[in-house]
Amino acid sequence: MPSSLTFKKKKIALIGECMIELSGQPFAQQAPLFGGDTLNTALYLSRLVPDMLPAYVTALGNDNYSRHMRQCWQQEGMDTQFVLTVDGKLPGLYAIENTPCGDSRFHYWRHDSAARYLCRHEQFSAVVEHLQSFDLVYLSGISLAILPDKDKHLLLRSLATLKEAGVHIAVDSNYRPALWPSSSDACEWIGKLYQMADIALVTADDEDRLLGMRNSPPAIIAKRMHSMGVKQVVVKLGAEGALWSQCGLSGTAKGNKVDQVIDTTAAGDAFNAAYLAAWSMGMDIDECCHWGNKLAARVIQHKGAIISQNFTRYITDLMNI
């Protein structure tokens, strides 16, 4: 572990969408919360490295739901200066149905959410300019999928600008078929995103769905990522842990034993947060995967995307950060 006296923590920004979340059975008691893949990662990252102040880049409305989200993120220690306001638009909405075995079904209402207008916002170019001073920018395939095609191009050009400025780009495909016109369309756009990435934190099942494959060997998935220029690849394998590949070397970080899975929502997002937290402290790729597995195992033992701060602090203590 690098000494805090000699090692400067990295500046990390995350781009995406946060939505209002309803969790529970339809027309039964449903708790209104908020969540979203990159937001979940940003929030866990903020808890794991409290003095980092990870920046969240998104667009919200000027309604009470949006104001409440901003306030909560600030209380969690997140930097909200890049949360832009789109007048007349609202956050998206999604509902989670949990099955008895702990799996989740998602239903979305987000076709005109404020986040879809992020890249065309008059202040977005200024945000990109500020992000050039960051060490890493993280986003997912969902961050891209929700945008109109013209705005997808804008986002990719912005990432290219950041990459030229020396900013690392980290990506998780988070492939959701319902967000794309077709799998071929998704392959094309997510492929462009991978070509920008220095780090890919992907889920084996997502990659198989994206390519119409089944049970692809993780090493083959990693090889495909490397062929697109990704230097550091992690393939998440659920209970089996994760395969990592970098600089011609590879290995497997074993998963943590879980006696009872309650809810798998945000397991991958939590893995990514702990991975990036460890990365920001200069840990090697195997150790980053180790902490990713540990937080994901803790999260799936609780309902909802965001678990209690007390349980997150438990993980923080184990990581000694």
Results as ranks from 00 to 15, higher is better:
L210D: 02
A59E: 11
M281L: 12
D135V: 01
L318P: 04
S113Y: 03
L193D: 00
S158N: 03
D259T: 12
N62M: 07
A242H: 10
H121N: 12
P32A: 02
H290F: 15
K150W: 03
Y56E: 00
G92S: 09
V127K: 03
C289D: 02
A145R: 02
T80P: 03
E188M: 12
K236C: 12
D63Y: 00
K236F: 13
A305G: 15
S23W: 09
T316I: 03
H107I: 15
E207P: 09
M52L: 09
K8R: 11
S250R: 06
A278E: 07
M1Q: 11
L90S: 14
Q260V: 14
D185A: 13
D79E: 11
W244A: 06
L210K: 05
P148Y: 06
D286P: 02
L276A: 04
T38G: 05
S46R: 05
G191M: 01
M196D: 03
G248S: 06
W244D: 08
I262D: 05
R120S: 13
G16D: 06
W109A: 06
L144K: 00
A274H: 03
A253P: 02
E164C: 08
N40K: 07
T161M: 09
V234L: 01
R105W: 04
D185K: 08
H226M: 01
H121C: 07
A266W: 08
A200S: 10
M19H: 15
L84N: 04
Q75N: 09
W279Q: 07
M319L: 01
V171H: 00
P177N: 10
V57K: 07
D37M: 00
V202G: 01
H121D: 10
H121Q: 05
K254V: 13
I285K: 00
G36T: 12
L5V: 11
K163I: 09
R105M: 09
R47F: 08
H226Q: 11
